[in-house]
C-alpha cells in the first residue's frame, strides 16, 4: 500500500487543499533559513504536535521518516568527518521537519483533491494542445500501480525462489519490465474502454 492518504475527518482533512499547500510553501520558506538547531528543535516539536492533533494514528504516521534513516545517518556522519557536527544536527533537523510537514499534507489530502488543486498549474499545456488532465492522471496512475508492480515483482521472486532456492537476482529485472509493459497495455485498453484520458466529449451529451 503506497497511497499515503490516511482516511479521517480531522481539522487538517477539512482544511482546503490550496490553503494547506500555501501554508506548506510559506512554512518551508521560513524554516529553510533557520540555522539555530534549538529553534529547529522547537519547530520539530510543533510539527510532531500537529501529527498528535490527528490522534494516535496520526502519531503513527511519523513512520514516514523510516526510509530517511540511512540518509540522515550518512549526512550526519559526513558532517562529523568534516568536523561540523552541529551543522550536521541542523541539516538533519531541517530535512526531517520539511519531510514531516510535506507528509502531513499528503496524509490529510485525498488524491483527487490534490489533483484538482494543482490542475490549474498544468493549464498552460492547453496552449501546446495537450489536455491538463493528462499529467494529473499520470500521477494518479503511478500511485495506483506502485503496489501492483510491487506484487508483480514479489510473485516473480517467489517463482524464482521456488525453482532456484535463491531469494532474488538481477535476472528478474527483464521479466519484470516485460510484465510491466504488458500490463500497461492492458491498463491503457481499460482506460479507453471508459472514454480515454480526455473523457467523453461533453458537447455531445
Amino acid at each position: 500500500m503506497i497511497s499515503l492518504y490516511l482516511p479521517g475527518q480531522s481539522w487538517l482533512h477539512r482544511c482546503p487543499v490550496r490553503l494547506k499547500l500555501l501554508c506548506l510553501a510559506i512554512a518551508s520558506l521560513l524554516i529553510f533559513p533557520i540555522s539555530d538547531p534549538r529553534l529547529l528543535g522547537i519547530v520539530l516539536i510543533v510539527v510532531v504536535g500537529l501529527y498528535g492533533s490527528l490522534g494516535p494514528q496520526g502519531l503513527r504516521q511519523l513512520k514516514a521518516l523510516k526510509p530517511l534513516v540511512s540518509l540522515v545517518v550518512i549526512i550526519f556522519l559526513l558532517h562529523i568527518v568534516a568536523g561540523s557536527w552541529l551543522e550536521g544536527v541542523t541539516a538533519v533537523l531541517r530535512l526531517v521537519v520539511m519531510v514531516l510537514l510535506a507528509n502531513l499534507v499528503s496524509i490529510t489530502t485525498r488524491m483527487d483533491d490534490m489533483m484538482e488543486a494543482v490542475m490549474p498549474l498544468f493549464a498552460p499545456l492547453r496552449l501546446l494542445g495537450m489536455s491538463p488532465r493528462k499529467p494529473a492522471l499520470a500521477v494518479t496512475l503511478v500511485l495506483r500501480f506502485a503496489p501492483v508492480l510491487l506484487s508483480v515483482y514479489s510473485s516473480l521472486r517467489e517463482a524464482y525462489q521456488a525453482r532456484s532456492g535463491r531469494r532474488t537476482s538481477w535476472r528478474l529485472m527483464a521479466p519484470f519490465l516485460l510484465q510491466s509493459l504488458a500490463m500497461s497495455e492492458n491498463v491503457a485498453e481499460a482506460l479507453s474502454a471508459r472514454g480515454g484520458a480526455d473523457g467523453l466529449r461533453q458537447d455531445k451529451a
Binding site: Y5, D112, T140, L143, L191, L200, Q202
Partner: peptide, 20 residues
C-alpha cells in the same frame, strides 16, 4: 488492470467525470 484510481470512491467517480 482495470482500476485506475488509488481509492474505491475515486474509481467510481471517474466514470461520472468522464461523462462530464
Amino acid at each position: 488492470h482495470q482500476a485506475i484510481f488509488p481509492t474505491v470512491e475515486e474509481e467510481i467517480a471517474f466514470g461520472l467525470t468522464q461523462l462530464g
